[in-house]
Design a protein around this nucleic acid. Sequence first.
DNA 1: GATATATTTAACATCTTGATTATATATTAG
DNA 2: CTAATATATAATCAAGATGTTAAATATATC
Lengths: 120, 120
Amino acid sequence: MREAAPPPEEIDRILSALADPTRRRMVDMLREGPRRAGDLAAAFAISGPAVSRHLRVLRENDLIEESREAGDARARLYSLRAQPFTELQGWLEEVAAFWTVQLGAFKAHAEKKPRRGKRK
Amino acid sequence: MREAAPPPEEIDRILSALADPTRRRMVDMLREGPRRAGDLAAAFAISGPAVSRHLRVLRENDLIEESREAGDARARLYSLRAQPFTELQGWLEEVAAFWTVQLGAFKAHAEKKPRRGKRK
DNA sequence: GATATATTTAACATCTTGATTATATATTAG
DNA sequence: CTAATATATAATCAAGATGTTAAATATATC
């Protein structure tokens, strides 16, 4: 059976979590593997608490998950979760389906009514 | 040659344009084809000017483009543009590349330390 | 040409977001 | 036990986003 499309609010949440540039870059950093909160903080020119809040937003929206570092339980490790990104990909595919159709329609249209135009 | 990855700021702009639920739903509506500003406005419980501003944000970030309706030049038609969505897909693919790797690592790990677990 | 229609722009109020500093919590090191 | 480290939460503030109503612009209709 086909996997159920996630409720729209879930896509909304994922998108708003990703909408902030700092959080976007955090995701980019985490692509290479789990990172300590401090490592992430060091990469940005904002205060620790600010970083912490961004991480919270990402965590509360399930984009990342938290764990404790092996040797030192003070440090928290953050790592990406696949699910939300997969869901977003799903939505984008649905959106992308449209130009398959639209391009077909446009082509048909262009053939019938080929006005010389600024294609811009 | 491989297509150049878009600058990160461009992905940021696309994401923030999509971060608002109303705009997200507008995109969903436009998936089915071009729509008049008024048609879009009718679909939401907010004032016309509010809709107009959302459309402006989408347009300024190149998610949609504006044209005039054939029979009635008062009406403006909005339609989706493919490019930003394609770029976003590109970024998501880069992100997704990580669990190919991570899952491999996890699998290796799981094989060494196979605790019977709730697979979630 | 006067009026109605479709939509945008302007001006403004308000809610939300992200940043900061100070403080709290937990854990490791001495 | 005490001090240092890693990080989070609290309180506060400024900036930005979004919504509203009123006015402007452009086009169509009578």
